[in-house]
Design a protein around this nucleic acid. Sequence first.
DNA 1: TCCATACTTGGAACGTCATTCCATTTATGT
DNA 2: ACATAAATGGAATGACGTTCCAAGTATGGA
Lengths: 231, 231
Amino acid sequence: MSRCDMMKKARSTQRREQSLSTDRIIEAAIELLDKSGEGGLTFQALSKRLATGPGAIYWHIANKSELLTAACDAIVSRTMNTTSVGTTPEATIRAVALGMFDAIDAHPWVGSALTRAAGQLPMVRIFERLGQQVRALGVPDNTQWTVVAALLNYILGVGSQNAANAQLGLEQGFDRANFLAEVSIVWSQLDPNEYPFTRSVATQLPTHDDRMDFLAGVDFILSGIASLRQY
Amino acid sequence: MSRCDMMKKARSTQRREQSLSTDRIIEAAIELLDKSGEGGLTFQALSKRLATGPGAIYWHIANKSELLTAACDAIVSRTMNTTSVGTTPEATIRAVALGMFDAIDAHPWVGSALTRAAGQLPMVRIFERLGQQVRALGVPDNTQWTVVAALLNYILGVGSQNAANAQLGLEQGFDRANFLAEVSIVWSQLDPNEYPFTRSVATQLPTHDDRMDFLAGVDFILSGIASLRQY
DNA sequence: TCCATACTTGGAACGTCATTCCATTTATGT
DNA sequence: ACATAAATGGAATGACGTTCCAAGTATGGA
């Protein structure tokens, strides 16, 4: 019987306090993920860092997916708690969005982990924060879901995208600047008849500011929402 | 020397026309992916279906990631070509967005494949289609990138999310309705002080229409863009 | 027609990883 | 002390992506 099969009956006393614990495992997992990306989190690396065997870890955590979700939740939870409350609902939504953007920028693996943990705690934390602000914004009840879903989808979408890019860089060793420069060259060599737009903006790719573009997208949605409030 | 190391010098004549070819491999890969999701695409299953060995496949395709991107591009390319042109730029953007939504709904693995193929052909196809319409919309040159990026990010974000959900269902065997019902129950049992919003919309989760919510999000962004055009 | 060459195949083998198993150690309550 | 349950850690398993290589097959020149 493994510990995690019996979440309900919380152990009355901890046996070996100093030794392995779910928290210590999660902490080590986050360190590994930050250092070497999603591929860096293996049970071998983890057990080596914790000076134990893979079996011991499985006593505390059901599987890798649960470990990833738990690590992700630790980051999201921190982010939601440190994000300052803005003066207006709009400002708070921007702050939450930017907070997540920066968190994923600092821990790219959070992007993909969030996507795979649909409906679970980490996502709910963001959903809730956004929802409260959307309410405060005066959006009618029957539209709140739609509005929050749009915001959340956008935030997670950009997050995944950035996470995937960072991941790619980490795995292949080249840095972001080089990668963008290479893609930019490929784009500028596309067929002018088939890809006029992509060609025309190819030069903007290496210099554009992801963070500003992200915020602009949030503002588009907020502005779309604003036009809803009068009804 | 493998075939795919020397893309440049296209073979003058095909040797064994009836036998293995990149196209046949991609076609088989799509079938496997559709049937059993991302986890269903293994080189063993693929070589069995093609009545060959893994080595033969590696002659035509560099690695699994390239295979996935190629399969993804086949779907995206079809989608972009079948999407009807609307009467206005807005209508066309909606059509492209919905086309991608439906494509990912039919082939959930495309969602995650797109995310991992950043800057590559499949994404560029969508980027271009959106870009041309955004231009037609009269968005000033220096804002086109931002606008297209917002649209693309939103579309891909929802796509990834839906893909992940479908994936989860496929892997774990339960269908979407059950999953949503279960999450809805969990949500409605959250702490009322910490999660008032999530609790209040929990009942909407199982009945809401993903496709409509998606389209509403596109309209928010389009409406946000509209307010830009006057400047 | 035959041969040298390059292309293509398919299966075996390798290394890595998540996960399971189990013998052993450690703490707790009696 | 001792019995029992909690926890450990290392070995074993099985699946997978990828590489290797011995064998087969078409093509173009002699």
